[in-house]
Design a protein around this nucleic acid. Structure first.
Length: 122
DNA sequence: CATCTGACACTAT
DNA sequence: TATAGTGCCAGAT
């Protein structure tokens, strides 16, 4: 198992209505401190619940339209916000206790905003 | 092989 | 709340 595949598998465990952070995913995958690698995996993968991954404290780290899209997607899943951050107290996913079947999410395809990142406002 | 970069985290200021 | 420095890994130059 490669580091990337572990990270990808961890990302897929996050159920609808729940979220996690780059750092938490890296730790849950067994590689604490490699939050940036989570970013790399996301950018190279399709059909992943990318909107459920946030920065520390539940902050959306995307810019421009992508940030808005992420927020809208999360809200449509029932995720609530506290200002510009997700209410982690209510929506942060606990990987440790997820040993059950976390297979109830997505039935539709998702698409990363790879076509419109890094714009002038970014 | 050296250096830079990235949808970050953490600590210090 | 915001800015600056350091750490971590992999991919691109």
């Amino acid at each position: 198992m490669t580091m990337d595949s572990r990270i990808l598998a961890t990302i897929r465990k996050i159920p609808r209505g729940k979220v996690s952070t780059y750092g938490a995913i890296a730790r849950a995958a067994g590689y604490p401190g490699v939050a940036r690698q989570v970013v790399a995996v996301l950018r190279r993968s399709f059909d992943v619940p990318w909107q459920r991954i946030l920065g520390a404290g539940g902050e959306i780290k995307l810019r421009g339209d992508s940030a808005l899209e992420q927020r809208l997607r999360l809200e449509s899943e029932g995720v609530t916000f506290r200002g510009r951050r997700v209410d982690m107290k209510r929506h942060e996913f606990n990987f440790v206790g997820s040993k059950r079947k976390a297979k109830q999410d997505q039935k539709r395809t998702t698409r990363p905003p790879a076509s419109k990142r890094r714009t002038a406002n970014g």
